[in-house]
């Protein structure tokens, strides 16, 4: 079976604004996630996690290589009907309420009004925002904003869910809630691709792990395979990242 998320030999560099120098962000990255898998994307800050995720959403375009979801190029607009996305540190229109935010998400994804209503109530309950749903997002705490973003990513019942640092800024309750949501989605046969640097969370819920450092993918394997060697994920992570840094210097 073809992988549902496929990044093939992608390189990406950004132009530094001040000096016209190009800065390499990704160097021939290839990774893939099968349908129904939970893919944990690991890496230190600035390794290229967010860049990779933005490539998946067509927010930026690769210099070379190809990015496909469900066999279709990510440049296809209609593809995003089946993709849900939570940005890192999400920031929404602050005068809207969570309910209106979800209404927009549903409308923009072409859902029917009644369907939106039903799904958003369910998601608001799951993310514990039911009481706050008529309040402006401006009044939310950071965790509440994160949860609202999660509800927005899921409102159109996507097949592929891409989450950029979904756990950051959440308290232990919030993190457990996100974990449970991801497990629910996996049970429903969805594919979840999420980045994080909180290793413990990944260890609990992932099927497959990719580790990225300095724009290069250094390891991609199923979690069971990795942990078979008896090491913890933490040990593997440090070992891989250090290997790259030594090579780089």
């Amino acid at each position: 079976m073809d992988p549902i998320i496929r990044v093939h030999d992608v390189s990406k560099s950004f132009r530094d604004n001040l000096s016209a120098r190009k800065v390499k962000a990704l160097e021939s990255i290839s990774l893939s996630a099968e349908k129904g898998e939970v893919y944990g994307f690991l890496g230190p800050n600035g390794a290229g996690k967010s860049t990779t995720i933005k490539l998946l959403l067509n927010l930026i375009r690769p210099d070379s290589g190809s990015v496909t979801i469900a066999g279709r190029s990510v440049e296809e607009r209609e593809l995003r009907r089946i993709v849900g996305f939570l940005p890192e540190n999400p920031y929404f229109y602050e005068h809207l309420t969570a309910e209106e935010l979800l209404w927009f998400g549903g409308q923009a994804s072409g859902m029917k009004g009644s369907e939106i209503k039903e799904r958003s109530m369910m998601l608001l309950e799951k993310t514990d925002l039911l009481d706050a749903r008529k309040r402006a997002i401006r009044t939310y705490s950071k965790g509440m904003v994160q949860r609202a973003g999660l509800a927005l990513a899921l409102v159109h019942d996507p097949e592929v869910i891409i989450l950029d640092e979904p756990m950051s800024g959440l308290d232990p309750f919030g993190r457990r809630m996100v974990s449970n949501l991801i497990i629910d989605m996996k049970k429903a046969g969805k594919t979840v691709f999420f980045s994080s640097h909180i290793l413990g969370d990944i260890e609990k819920i992932c099927d497959k792990v990719g580790i990225i450092a300095e724009g290069r993918l250094c390891l991609e394997d199923s979690l069971t395979n990795l942990l078979n060697y008896g090491a913890t994920l933490e040990d593997i992570f440090f070992a891989e990242v250090e290997k790259i840094s030594v090579k780089g210097n």
């Binding site: 959403l57 995003r80 993709v83 940005p87 229109y93 923009a108 994804s109 990513a153």
Partner: peptide, 9 residues
């Protein structure tokens, strides 16, 4: 905030 819009179709 544009991300949440462009992530839609």
């Amino acid at each position: 905030t544009i991300y949440m819009v462009l992530a839609r179709p």
